[in-house]
């Protein structure tokens, strides 16, 4: 099984390192991305999902550091590599060519002073994939048409401000895909977009993954996005994975009270409840250490054990893992 995994996070921890104290923000998570599948990572803001993604290609902000665990990257060419131990120079070679990233806000991630075609071409020339200027340009234009931009040759010379939000996100995806990476990390790729454009971008990502046998890690807080796009889902709460399951299983049989809370707080077209279900309380302060379950203060069916003992991630069904005392029949 483990040969099929493209990326494996083993007991990964990320902390904010200060002068006096270190504050763990990702607390030992295990995450598997099999070849050719789309994996989702969901959770509220501040639960550490973006930090997990950023640790993969080593673009953590300067105050954060990987403090434990390993990031195993498996390819035919280089075998097994721990990305956490790579030097920056070696990592830079992998970023863009093997691992690519798409961010949430397409306006701030594009250079406003550079034509979009040139920006995409830069990826090719910097990585030395295509040194010939003309051939590189042709490849960019081909990529632009692949991501569904009409009149790609004309758009090559467009400036970012001339494009709409959806078009900019398509340019970002083109830029990420141009070197045919093995893994695409998409951090909230559609949050800033309209529903109609969102649907287009999601089907684009899905199609590109299928056609290029690419894997993807999609970070989002939108459960609707997860259900249309992903094969397998990890739910994070306060720096650790509380539940993970194949997407259908998660939606049909959510076991962790947090997952259930997340799912039932989304309004649905068609059913009109008087009020929406909400999870009581707020996300607790990460600075406070608590020996019990992280969720027990907001949980509706907590038991005594929850306050004294951290539950372990346990398999309850085929590929379905839950971190909750209740799900073990306690």
């Amino acid at each position: 099984m483990s040969e099929d995994l493209l990326l494996e996070l083993r007991d990964l921890s990320v902390s904010i390192v200060g002068k006096k104290e270190t504050l763990p923000i990702v607390k030992g998570i295990d995450l598997h991305i099999p070849r050719g599948s789309i994996v989702g990572l969901v959770g509220e803001s501040g639960c550490g999902k973006s930090m997990t993604a950023k640790s993969i290609n080593n673009i953590l902000p300067p105050f954060a550091r990987v403090t434990g665990g390993s990031i195993i990257w498996r390819t035919e060419a280089s075998g097994e590599v721990d990305l956490a131990l790579l030097k920056e120079k070696e990592m830079r070679k992998k970023c863009g060519t093997e691992i690519a990233m798409v961010f949430q806000e397409p306006m701030t991630s594009l250079n406003p002073l550079m034509q979009v075609g040139e920006q995409i071409k830069e990826v090719l020339t910097i990585h030395g994939v295509e040194r010939d200027n003309k051939k590189a340009k042709d490849r960019v234009i081909e990529m632009l048409s692949k991501v569904g931009i009409a009149e790609p040759a004309l758009r090559y010379n467009a400036w970012p401000h001339e494009l709409s939000g959806g078009m900019r996100q398509r340019v970002m995806i083109a830029m990420a895909m141009i070197c045919q990476p093995k893994l695409l990390i998409a951090d909230e790729p559609t949050t800033a977009l309209d529903v109609t454009i969102e649907a287009q971008i999601l089907s684009l990502i899905k199609e590109l993954c299928r056609n290029n046998s690419m894997s993807a890690l999609v970070i989002t807080h939108n459960m609707g996005v997860v259900s249309t796009l992903c094969d397998y889902v990890y739910v994070m709460y306060l720096g650790s994975v509380v539940e993970s399951a194949p997407v259908k299983e998660l939606f049909n049989n959510p076991c962790h009270p947090y997952t259930r809370g997340l799912l039932s707080s989304i309004p649905h077209v068609g059913d009109n409840p008087e009020f929406l279900h909400t999870i009581p309380g707020n996300v607790p302060d990460m600075k406070k250490h608590f020996k019990g379950c992280d969720f027990c203060l907001r949980c509706s069916d907590d038991i005594k054990q929850c306050f004294f003992e951290k539950p372990a991630l346990t398999e309850t069904g085929a590929g379905h893992f839950v971190r909750c005392h209740r799900s073990l029949g306690a």
Binding site: D194, G261, L262, S265, P267, F275, L276, H277, T278
Partner: peptide
Amino acid sequence: DVCVQAQILNLLKKLKQEMDLTCLFISH
């Protein structure tokens, strides 16, 4: 976020009932 969004939506609905507000709600 979804959870917070649900809380605020509930609040708006509650206020509307209590205060007899008219509300123009813009959303995508």
